[in-house]
């Protein structure tokens, strides 16, 4: 499976090295001064991509839990609050939401007499976090529901209240089960952060777009861009597998 793919891609890349080929690797050739400058320019977007993804994911994990808990309530009103949030937020495509937050929200703030500017950095983070929180909430829900009812009952019979039951009994068990889907969501956030480029956020995709405009070598630059995301995601995956091993080692039920 792997071998023909490698062979094909090697051939494709080598084709670009011939003088009349379609590839022009010089644009990101690290041995030339201009190529090296270009690479530095592209890769320097990595910091912002990581930063907005991590902050957005952290917010999403908290908001997701706050949204998920009323969904477990025995009171119908609370469950409706949860359903409305989840259904509404996850139906909004990321790009329109990004426009709404970045261009629309400041107008609402202004009408309320507040002067809160939204820069591309926080606009991207708010959008990614809110959009993702609906999915995170659903992940929490399935995690909490996967814990046997008897656990909650046992906690009740030793006098724990709702918050204590969640904190000491249900969530520590649920977290092991929801870690893989949460990690998936994080990878999703990293990839979706590329949309922040359209509101001027200087991250990986924005850098690539800007260089393409000056160098006219979209094939090479976007290829490198894809490789940059690939490396980022592979590192995250490895980290998650390590975390899972560490947390799962004592779970034998």
């Amino acid at each position: 499976m792997m071998k023909p793919f490698l062979l094909l891609s090697t051939l494709l890349l080598l084709a670009g090295c011939s003088s009349n080929g379609t590839w022009g690797w010089y644009v990101i050739n690290p041995t030339t001064a201009s190529g090296w400058t270009n690479i530095k320019f592209l890769v320097s977007g990595m910091g912002n991509t990581i930063l907005i993804s991590v902050i957005a994911a952290a917010i999403s994990i908290v908001v997701g839990l706050v949204v998920a808990l009323p969904g477990q309530s025995s009171k119908r009103g609370w469950r409706i609050v949860n359903r409305v949030y989840v259904e509404f937020i996850r139906s909004i495509p990321l790009l329109p939401m990004l426009f709404w937050v970045f261009y629309g929200l400041p107008i609402i703030f202004k009408s309320m007499g507040l002067n809160i500017p939204i820069d591309p950095f926080w606009g991207a983070i708010i959008t990614l976090a809110i959009s993702d929180s609906a999915f995170t909430a659903e992940i929490y829900r399935s995690g909490i529901q996967s814990i046997a009812k008897g656990q909650k009952e046992a906690a009740q019979t030793i006098g724990l209240n709702y918050i204590q039951t969640m904190r000491y009994v249900i969530l520590p068990q649920a977290i092991r089960r929801i870690l893989p889907p949460l990690a998936n969501q994080f990878i999703y956030i990293v990839k979706m952060s590329a949309f922040a480029s359209v509101i001027g956020m200087q991250e990986l995709t924005r850098r690539a777009n800007e260089l393409v405009v000056t160098e006219y070598r979209p094939l090479e630059i976007y290829t490198l861009l894809i490789v940059e995301y690939l490396i980022l995601v592979l590192i995250i995956s490895a980290g998650v597998r390590w975390l899972e091993r560490k947390m799962g080692s004592d779970e034998r039920v």
Binding site: A148, G150, Q151, E153, A154, A155, T157, I158, G159, L160, N161, Q164, Y168, V169, P172, Q173, R176, D250, E251, R252, V253
Partner: peptide
């Protein structure tokens, strides 16, 4: 209450299972 399925907390040691209620509640 003692349950048919024990309902011990699997992520805690035996001693932690015992002290959780007295400490938190």
């Amino acid at each position: 209450m003692v349950f048919q399925q024990f309902n011990l907390f699997p992520h805690l040691s035996v001693l932690e299972n015992l002290v959780l209620g007295p400490m938190k509640a």
